[in-house]
Amino acid sequence: MEITVTVNGTSHTHDVEPRTLLVHYIREHVGLTGTNIGCDTSSCGACSVHLNGEAVKSCTLLAVQADGQEIRTIEGMADADGTLHPMQQAFMENHGLQCGYCTPGMVMAATSLLEENPQPTEQDVRLGLEGNLCRCTGYHNIVKSVLAAAAND
């Protein structure tokens, strides 16, 4: 099936097998490998991207469902001049990442969380990120990063 998807502001047209998951489409057809895969049950959130501005797990959608839609991935977050997105900057300043594998998904989910709730409490952040797993940080500094990003906004 031929689909046209706008990814980080650029339009892409590809012929894909109908069973292709959005995450595989992003990684293998568009060639953006910043979006990681951590499970096969939509449990870990490593593959979170924005679909029309809202965080989704890109393993739960077929690529064909994104036809005509706007996708933003981690590669679309920082400015072209190298300035990090405020959420990326907050993760860096608060040591919100270690191995970095969950980080792209975590950043995408966290930015979406703040879109919905710009001034969350600590508990709001913990509940809001419960679909994203991290094995390194114990979440302490991830929560701190998101709260810092909210405070700086």
Partner: peptide, 21 residues
């Protein structure tokens, strides 16, 4: 000191084994 490792990991620039072309 903030980590040198972070910018590539935060932007999707890092290459994990399965990212290799």
């Amino acid at each position: 000191m903030l980590r040198k490792e972070d910018p590539v990991l935060l932007t999707g620039e890092a290459v994990f084994t399965n990212d290799m072309v």
